[in-house]
Design a protein around this nucleic acid. Sequence first.
DNA 1: GTGGTCTAGACCACG
DNA 2: GTGGTCTAGACCACG
Lengths: 124, 124, 124, 124
Amino acid sequence: MDFDASRPIWRQLVEECARRIVTGQWPVGERVPGVRDLGVELGVNPNTVQRAMSELDRQGVTVADRTKGRHVTHDADRVDTLRQELAATQADEFIRGARGLGMSLDRAQSLIDTRWNALEQEES
Amino acid sequence: MDFDASRPIWRQLVEECARRIVTGQWPVGERVPGVRDLGVELGVNPNTVQRAMSELDRQGVTVADRTKGRHVTHDADRVDTLRQELAATQADEFIRGARGLGMSLDRAQSLIDTRWNALEQEES
Amino acid sequence: MDFDASRPIWRQLVEECARRIVTGQWPVGERVPGVRDLGVELGVNPNTVQRAMSELDRQGVTVADRTKGRHVTHDADRVDTLRQELAATQADEFIRGARGLGMSLDRAQSLIDTRWNALEQEES
Amino acid sequence: MDFDASRPIWRQLVEECARRIVTGQWPVGERVPGVRDLGVELGVNPNTVQRAMSELDRQGVTVADRTKGRHVTHDADRVDTLRQELAATQADEFIRGARGLGMSLDRAQSLIDTRWNALEQEES
DNA sequence: GTGGTCTAGACCACG
DNA sequence: GTGGTCTAGACCACG
């Protein structure tokens, strides 16, 4: 995983893990990898992973058990809420920016359309 | 102006000034306020403003003149490009996030629509 | 039973069992449930229950007998003492906290009064 | 400062700093010592202090400024709320314990009275 | 000088 | 073996 140097790694880890959870890569109620394994996988120190996971614990998205490891909450509603929070936050950031630049909703929609296709093109 | 404590102020100033330029609040070719005045207006250390303006100079968006102060570039095309860069960057960030969450283009568009109206509601 | 994840389960078990003893739920001199049964009842590993019971044994509150199982001490005075210890410990913790916040005895008493009623309200 | 070995130091630091704030030892809006100075004063690693202060930041009780250091929030209401939260939390813990032991409100009040005087006696 | 981040490494309780 | 804590030490951006 490659990190954006301008933001703390632990925050990016929070986002990445949240993404894994809402996409079902880490299913509701199931065990997630330990901080040591994740550290190896992502190329960061286990302490940095720990910091990220603690934040997810605090948000009620994951639950830590000293002996059995950590698992995604059994509360599917919490995961649904998280999914909506993530989506809304991303949308709101874009919208605030677009409006700051004086765009109308139509203009913003059309821009998304254009860029979506442009990014798909780049990949292929 | 209120700043996001998690990001450097000078970067947020770069964005704010760029916004003023592409929206015409600071018109092409015209003089921009001095770093001291801007510092007072925004409640920021003049050194921090200076750092932001230097970045805009570097990008060719503003031009510093030791005697006449600093002005927006006379090059209208450069401002147009800046406008498109800002818009595309914001759109791309959103799109990458939306796709990371597994959204389709339609779903993303619909989300923007919903949140745009939600944010307008909140303001009134 | 729901446990506070920030404290060892075995310590919380010690408190719960002590509570059962001083309230007479587990009467003086009578047999207490086996660690396996308690483990099932409380949703806890029997080893963890064992650790808690050993602590009560050590305190002379319970007595383990390899053949007849474990029972509450026959010494009613010991149970009385335990009751007072538990009460005093809880009171002292609160008092130290209240004084640390600069409260007077009157203020502390009035706070207890208010919160007692508030908690009763919440339950109904 | 002497710490309770059974609880994380950083949590105890959160409580100690909160206590200093609600008692006015660290007044509303005023600068608090840096993490390095606090670490020396309290005999712990600056990182541990940092962890505690981050929690107070998160609660909106303190505000960190990368260059000017950290200060107590200017929001006196927030400090008032904190004071009430701390007091209520302590009271609730005691009350839950007292009721678990089968005490009536009167009995609890009388216990507080007795222990308050006992603790005062011990000090002198 | 300040807060913030990150790493490396150690140790611990837990069960 | 697991998560949690703590330390020591380094480095960085910031202003």
